[in-house]
Amino acid sequence: MLKVESLAKSYRNKVIIDDISFTINKGDIVGLVGENGAGKSTLLSILATLKKPTKGNIFLEDKSFDHSKKAIRREIGYVPQDLALWEEFTVEENMIFFEQLSWVNRNKDELRQLCVDMKLEKWKEPVHSLSGGMKRKLNLAISLIHQPNLLLLDEPTVGIDLKSKTEIGNYLHTLAKKQQKMIIYTSHDMEEIRQLCDYVIVIGKDTFYKEILLKSGKPVLSF
């Protein structure tokens, strides 16, 4: 369970996030939407322990973000908005590189399976020759190597074709429903959000989206 209490963030005098509270349970997929510059990436980095909130508390299970940052990081799979890959390495080399540096030991077969699961079949090919969709998949796969429970994905499907989008979406769905992961992700694709998410968090200055997700029937969280 991820619990956010009265979270606020401002840079100098500029308020980016103003008093947000919400709770996410295991198996939930939560969409984070808002216009450009609304503070989606900022919120995700705070949840990823990369930025400190100006105000408020965050808890993952019973661990406080203020006191057990190191332990919490092991539980987090963060997918940055910009691709964070070694362009000149192959898929295999990228996976092995980050496996070596991660907290857990996973053998080559497991790493390969991780890629195959999200339909990333290229293995010996250098990243710079991959399609945009493949790169996004690898970007996601690397963040999953250490088997985190909370996934924070910053626009994981930006700029890729429908097929790859669906494949990534299906994979995220499996992760949440079969492995009970918590997933928060941002996207500008409302159709995708509608299909995949259990909840939507809308942030922004004067954005008060009211949307009901028809699929799950759960109400939209709005701030």
Binding site: L50, R73, I76, Y78, D82, A84, W86, F98, L101, S102
Partner: peptide, 18 residues
């Protein structure tokens, strides 16, 4: 300068020890 920098908080080593 590398693009993988955002991943450093999520590895076993502090980036100085890396």
């Amino acid at each position: 300068r590398s693009s993988i920098k955002p991943r450093f908080p999520f590895i076993r080593f502090t980036y100085k020890w890396y």
